[in-house]
């Protein structure tokens, strides 16, 4: 029973990790671009939610508004800055996005102070569910259900619609997609914006669970990288599987050996890399 509880908790955590990482993965698949600023968009999503809720706006409005704002900011960044550097070597992708992440982090400290804060869970879900001896917060259950629906919708968009087909075609060959008459520049901006927007949404959803603080972006970036490496870069299902795997591992380990929970995740990742260098579901 204890384990069932930990696994449920882990799935909740894992769905958030999936939401955080899937954007990074799809952006990489399409643009061959490693985005070290991905965690910073998660940070922005969380802080926008925090700010709006502090001003008395309902969480149900604040969450989607935060995600949309992050999407717009990310798309604008792509148009103004990032599309100029795709053709440069990876070194400069990293340099620019590390610089971007630093700027966002420092701006967040300037705007909201260095200490961070808490976001109360929305009223409809601020209770707990009691199963036997175990107490589970309703809000976490909401996060599991909500992200599961979102993951399904996302899968349908990527696999079942024309838009998704174009995005997947773009990851196979940007040149051929452009030759078919698709405006790849616009697709790139949209995918980058939406991928970052999903990270922002993950931040918004995580805010009532873990609060906000200026360095949460860095931690999120680490998690997103693990999930993408374990799942396989550019793979949607890989990100889902790896997200849940990482979440459950972390949650179960937290009850067995709390200090070593993070260590086990990175050890697990090292094992995956050594045995399956492309990740669990990565393509060749």
């Amino acid at each position: 029973m204890t384990y069932l509880f930990q696994i449920l908790n882990g799935i909740g955590l894992g769905m958030l990790y999936f939401l955080l990482a899937v954007g990074l993965s799809v952006i990489f698949g399409l643009l061959q671009f490693v985005n070290f600023a991905h965690g910073a968009f998660y940070l922005l999503g969380a802080y926008f939610t925090y700010d709006l809720v502090e001003r008395g706006v309902s969480f149900w409005v604040a969450m989607p508004v935060a995600a949309v704002l992050v999407t717009l900011i990310a798309a604008a960044t792509e148009i103004v800055l990032l599309r100029r550097i795709y053709k440069l070597p990876h070194t400069f992708h990293i340099l620019v996005t590390v610089g971007l992440a630093l700027m966002i982090q420092e701006l967040a400290i300037i705007a909201w102070g260095p200490l961070g804060g808490n976001v109360p869970a929305p009223e409809a879900f601020n209770g707990v569910i009691i199963i036997g001896n175990f107490v589970y917060p309703e809000y976490r259950l909401f996060v599991i259900v909500f992200t599961a629906i979102l993951a399904g919708a996302l899968w349908w968009v990527l696999e079942g619609t024309r838009v998704g087909a174009v995005v997947r075609a773009g990851s196979e060959s940007a040149e051929n997609t452009a030759l078919l008459g698709y405006n790849t520049l616009r697709i790139n901006s949209a995918v980058f914006g939406l991928g970052a927007g999903l990270a922002g949404l993950a931040g918004a959803l995580a805010a009532p669970i873990r609060g906000v603080e200026p360095f949460m972006g860095l931690e999120a970036l680490g998690i997103a990288f693990i999930v993408v490496v374990i799942g396989g870069m550019g793979s949607y299902t890989g990100a889902l599987l790896a997200g849940i795997l990482v979440g459950v591992t972390q949650s179960v380990m937290a009850s067995l050996w709390p200090e070593g929970a993070r260590l086990m995740i990175y050890l697990g990742m090292a094992l995956v890399i050594v045995t399956m260098p492309r990740g669990l579901l990565g393509r060749a």
Partner: peptide, 30 residues
Amino acid sequence: WLSIRRQGVYFVMLTLAFSQFFFFLAYTFS
């Protein structure tokens, strides 16, 4: 030895992963 199994971006992410691994190693074995 472990990182050069992959190239390009994957290599970078591997080295980053190892850096996190060693950080938590140091953090855990206080």
